[in-house]
Design a protein around this nucleic acid. Structure first.
Lengths: 122, 122
DNA sequence: TTGATTTAACACCTTTTGGTTATATGTCAA
DNA sequence: TTGACATATAACCAAAAGGTGTTAAATCAA
């Protein structure tokens, strides 16, 4: 049941949500405080928090009449793994381009996977 | 004119687009080859390629009747910088939680920026 | 030249996203 | 107990996202 309803990549796609995360990096905050940093309505911020929560990037707990949100950066490792995929490749890519001028296809192997499935692909 | 129409974060938000990037990491490919790896229509893939192109993650050049696409991983540094923002913070966050049990707010400084502007915020 | 291949450009459709307002509900402080 | 405060929830909306199919144009190979 660790299956997050919302994808991490999709969660950080929105600039407002990224700013919320940066805000929570400094420490946990109640909704009212969070929304005071944005020009949009509190309701809109709550929706963003729900999306971040679905991606397990934040969690909220009631404290009196407030709901305090806290950051959980762990799911961001998936993002890290993704861009590192290209970090390793960057040098070998460059090599290919230099070798054969990069004007024609290089490999073109087959696999035909199909992205329709839900298979936690990074 | 380096102003990308599409945000890098938003570009990599879609799983199909991430797979396209992984595909192009192995070498440049024409549209027909790329779309052969997906269950969706060629038209859909072209739209994805346009979005990736707007984010300057790929570029395409005509070669005969084919259009060859090539990866440009550079914009992903922005993603990396974002991710690292939380890695630095992770230890100090943990420290805070341990120190005061994390049941109450920690800092709550003000800034009120407003995310409406186009200001290249990571 | 003709036909197959590959991309380009539309028009169209459905669902999701990001936002709004209005109306409860629960909680602290006098 | 009465406000004021903080969150919750519902109904609604416009625009964007992700997809489809159709048609046209360019190019390579016979």
């Amino acid at each position: 049941m660790t299956a997050a309803k919302h994808d991490v990549f999709q969660a950080i796609a929105d600039p407002t949500r990224r700013k919320v995360l940066r805000l929570l990096a400094k420490g946990e905050l109640p909704i009212s405080e969070i929304s005071s940093h944005f020009p949009v309505s509190r309701t809109a911020i709550v929706k963003h928090l729900n999306i971040l929560s679905d991606a397990e990037l934040v969690s909220g707990h009631k404290a009196g009449r407030e709901k305090i949100y806290r950051l959980h950066p762990e799911p961001l490792t998936e993002v890290r793994e993704f861009y590192e995929l290209f970090w390793e490749n960057k040098l070998s890519m460059l090599k290919h381009v230099v070798e054969n001028d990069g004007t024609k296809g290089i490999k073109r192997d087959e696999d035909q996977e199909g992205t329709g499935s839900k298979g936690k692909e990074i």
